[in-house]
Structure formats: C-alpha cells, structure tokens
Design a protein around this nucleic acid. Structure first.
Lengths: 146, 146
DNA sequence: CTGAATCCTCTATGATACTG
DNA sequence: CAGTATCATAGAGGATTCAG
C-alpha cells in the first residue's frame, strides 16, 4: 500500500472492462502497489489454491482435475488454469496424440507456493473447530439480542 | 463413467489434500467439505487478509483502518470486520466516550493466523517480480500469436 | 467518529450447448 | 479428450446518504 495520500482525485482509471470474458484485461493497476493484495486477489479465488495443491501432488490431465474437484465447471477450470499458467505457476503440456492429451503440472515457481499454501491450509484444518464455535456463538448472541 | 476403459484404472477419486509432506497428517476429506476450501472462501476475499495483517501490527481504530487501506469503502470495511469478528479472529471494543471510539484488535485465534499469512505475504513479495515477468511474457506471446 | 441503509455496477461462477 | 461460446445469476464491492 503506498497510500498515505488522502486526496487521490479518482484518476480516470477503470477502463471499463466491458469486454465480457477476456483473459485479464489489464485491471488498471493503480491499486497494484501492494504485492500482497495483488497476489491474494490473483490466487485468492475459489479454485486457484486447490488446483495448486492438487498439482503439487503430481501432474494431472484436464479431465482428471475436472473429476477430482467435483463442483468446478469446465469454464472455471479452464479459466483458472490459464490464469495460473499466465502467472507462471502452472505449465501446460500438449501431447500430440489422438485424442489429444494435455498435462498440467506446477512450474518451479508454482512449487514454491506450495509451502506457504500448506501452512495456511494447515491452519485452516487445525482451527476449524474454533472458528465454527466462534460463529455459532456469535450467531446465538445475535439472535438473543433481538 | 461406465465402461470406458481408459488407461487410468479407477483413480482414487478423492485425492488427499496436501499429501506431499506436511509436518502433520492432514485428514483427506472430500473437497466439498474440505475446511481448507471453506476457510479460503471465508478469509480469501479482497480485504480480510490485509486487515488481519494490519491488526497484527497493532490495534487500530475504525477510521485508522479506513485511511490505512486506501481503497476500501466504509461498507466493505465494516462488513469485513464483522465477518472476522464473527469468526472469532477480531475483537471489537467500544469505548463509551464522546464521540465514541472503537478499537479493533486480533484475538488470540486471529493471532495464530498471522504466521501462515505472513508466509504467504512473504512469498508474494519474494516472487513478485517473477510473476510480473511471467505475465508480461505470456501477454507478449499472446499478442504475437495474433 | 462509527457506522447503517440504500442503490447500483461489475465480476466471478455456473449451466448448457457446440467443436477439433 | 480438451476445450470454446453464449447466456444467466448471485454476490462482491463501491457510492451516496442518513444517523446515534
């Protein structure tokens, strides 16, 4: 965050991404100052982390991933993989067989993500119950107060 | 998925999450019920992680946070703080002064998140350049191909 | 100062159908 | 098998206004 300036006069950013489905129409990186926020927004969607974790175990074929995740649509699987590929985290290899076989795997860079990601995942598992309890508690209180 | 005998003989369908080499055994749940995915969806939005990191440095007042983040709307700041509070990660203390002062801080549970989060943030900072380069490269290739 | 309420836009994601 | 193309929708998130 490079902030500290309280008077950013709304630069004419926002190039109005009217293009519906383009791959990353360059999101006017005025906000890209903080790499942490940037990265979280890039890998912080619903599927990226799971894909990285899956591919961290071993390379996978497209439909293998599709079956393994069970709940992701083809559209999002493809899109997420392409994003990860663009960011240099995932490699896509096409084998010119018939029918074509495509194998996805982590790049070395992607491999380095695996460790901090595991730390987070580990945290999630370890504190799952506490969070559940906190939520239950909060919701109970909220009801009681009305 | 009936009789199509491909070369992949009935894969275990439920790949264990994070089976590579964690310090602790991680229960291989189904992905749908995976606490990892759940937690990521809860804390994986645009602001939660940044707030936790900020509050990890020291307690903050509401407007302090608003100024510090530069880009978040009041609406989302309040909403995100409430979510974190509900999940037991953030504590909200109202001081009955005039005008009222509200202080936000991490709970002990929230404090435990700080470490894995820092690992991720660290990764983001360390590999920022590589990612940028990968993206630039990919975009260049994409243009050249047309 | 710390929000709540309202309205609105854009984005992420899904469903479905089609293709090399 | 490995995608694309198209349509549709819920919800994230912002802007603005009101209030204790």
């Amino acid at each position: 965050m490079s902030g500290t300036h309280t008077d950013v006069p709304a630069p004419p950013t926002v190039p109005s991404v009217l293009a519906h489905d383009l791959p990353r129409p360059v999101p006017a990186d005025e906000f890209a100052a903080c790499p942490v926020g940037e990265t979280f927004r890039r890998v912080g969607d619903r599927w990226s982390m799971l894909l990285v974790i899956l591919l961290g175990q071993r390379p996978h074929r497209y439909n293998e991933l599709h079956r393994a995740i069970e709940g992701i649509s083809q559209r999002m699987l493809t899109r997420t993989l392409r994003n990860l590929e663009t960011d240099g985290l995932v490699r896509r290899e096409v084998h010119p067989t018939v029918p074509p076989g495509v194998e996805y795997s982590l790049t070395p860079l992607g491999g380095t993500l695996l460790e901090p990601l595991s730390a987070l995942a580990d945290w999630a598992v370890r504190h799952e119950v506490e969070i559940e309890e906190a939520r239950a508690h909060a919701l109970r209180d909220r009801r009681a107060q009305r």
